[in-house]
Design a protein around this nucleic acid. Structure first.
Length: 154
DNA sequence: GCCAACGTTGGC
DNA sequence: GCCAACGTTGGC
């Protein structure tokens, strides 16, 4: 089982919406970056766990734990004209974008903030992709060592 | 294939 | 709202 980090702006979709969703499950749609797409399509497996990260908000940080309940399948929001995530270059016959389904396992007892993660950048969280300068990936792998360390901070 | 222009991301 | 970093686009 692998670990991941999924990034989302809470004003668009975050912990609260996930909590309110039926079975606390949702499809993770709207990823429009090829590197992240490849992970969603090829790498992420049912049973994998992921941190939910809130970005572009007052307190950016890790807020919860998700479980992957369906592995990569075409992101149908790309097929819908008028949808925010519509992409005429993606068709059901030849889909360009993929998504997975995730279920909320639990919220963290407290937010592990970006600031706090940064404080460990030189030691325990060396090479943590989230902390790379200018990192913009919305889906990224988390090593087992980093995963366990972050959870131990909770 | 190069690279400038442009749009988006995301911390602050 | 600002702006640095980065990905994508499109002319050549």
């Amino acid at each position: 089982m692998k670990h991941w980090l999924l990034k989302s702006e809470p004003s668009v979709f975050g912990l609260e919406q996930l909590r309110a969703a039926p079975k606390k499950t949702t499809h993770w749609d709207g990823v429009r970056n090829y590197q992240a797409r490849n992970l969603l399509r090829d790498e992420i497996q049912v049973g994998d766990e992921a941190f939910l990260y809130h970005s572009n908000c007052a307190e950016p940080g890790i807020v919860g734990i998700l479980r992957v309940v369906r592995s990569g399948y075409p992101d149908h929001t790309a097929f819908e004209p008028g949808h925010d995530h519509h992409d005429p270059g993606s068709t059901p016959e030849n889909p360009r974008w993929y998504m997975v389904d995730v279920q909320l396992v639990r919220a963290l007892k407290r937010v592990i903030t970006l600031e706090e993660l940064r404080a460990h950048q030189e030691q325990k969280l060396r090479d943590f992709q989230l902390l790379r300068r200018g990192n913009r990936l919305s889906v990224m792998p988390v090593s087992d060592v980093h995963w366990r360390f972050i959870l131990s901070r909770e």
